[in-house]
C-alpha cells in the first residue's frame, strides 16, 4: 500500500472509531484464565486482561480495517508498539461494556536501519453499564513505510 503523505497521516488524529459493546461472558473468562494461567475466581471479578480484550473487541472495526484506515495492510508488517492499560475498577463477569475511542496521535519517524515508519496511537474507553469508565486502554501500532 502506498505510503501516506504527512498530511494524510496527521489527518488520522481525532478519527473516532465506530465503537460497540463487549459482554464479559463467564465461559470466555474461564477459558481465558485457563490459557494464561490465572486463578478461576468466584467473586465475579474478571482478569485485568479483559480491559484489553473488551477494548479491542468493542472497537467497532477489525484489526485489518484498522490497518487499512492507517494506509497499511498486514503484508506491510505492522508491529504492536506500546500497550497501556488503566484499570479504574475491575470488569465484572456477566456485565456488558460499551467501548468508544479515537486515534490520538500519528507521527512519522526515521530509523537508521529500519527506514521510515509511522506510529499511530489510539485510546479506547471501556464504559460500565452505569456510565462510569472502568478502563482506558491506549495502544500503538508501528507501520514500516516504503518510499513513495
Amino acid at each position: 500500500m502506498p505510503t501516506p503523505t504527512i498530511e494524510e497521516l496527521e489527518s488520522l488524529v481525532g478519527r473516532q472509531f465506530p465503537g460497540g459493546t463487549y459482554a464479559v461472558e463467564p465461559w470466555r473468562v474461564w477459558l481465558t484464565n485457563d490459557v494464561i494461567g490465572a486463578p478461576q475466581r468466584t467473586d465475579n471479578i474478571a482478569h485485568p486482561m479483559f480491559c484489553y480484550y473488551a477494548a479491542m473487541a468493542g472497537l467497532g472495526i477489525s484489526i485489518d480495517e484498522m490497518f487499512t484506515l492507517c494506509y497499511a495492510s498486514a503484508d506491510d508488517g505492522p508491529m504492536f508498539g506500546e500497550c497501556d492499560i488503566q484499570q479504574f475498577r475491575p470488569l465484572e463477569v456477566g456485565a456488558t461494556y460499551t467501548v468508544r475511542g479515537e486515534i490520538t496521535s500519528a507521527v512519522r519517524k526515521q530509523g537508521e536501519r529500519t527506514g521510515a515508519f509511522d506510529i499511530v496511537a489510539f485510546q479506547l474507553e471501556v464504559v460500565a453499564p452505569d456510565g462510569e469508565v472502568s478502563s482506558v486502554v491506549s495502544n500503538s501500532f508501528i507501520f514500516p513505510r516504503r518510499p513513495r
Binding site: V35, C83, D84, I85, P90
Partner: peptide, 23 residues
Amino acid sequence: LGYVMNMLGDWAGGAERIQNIRV
C-alpha cells in the same frame, strides 16, 4: 502480558489491585 499481570496479582493479593500497566 497476562503472565506479567498474574505475577503482579500473586504478589499484590489480587490482579484487581493493578491500576496501570504500560509495556
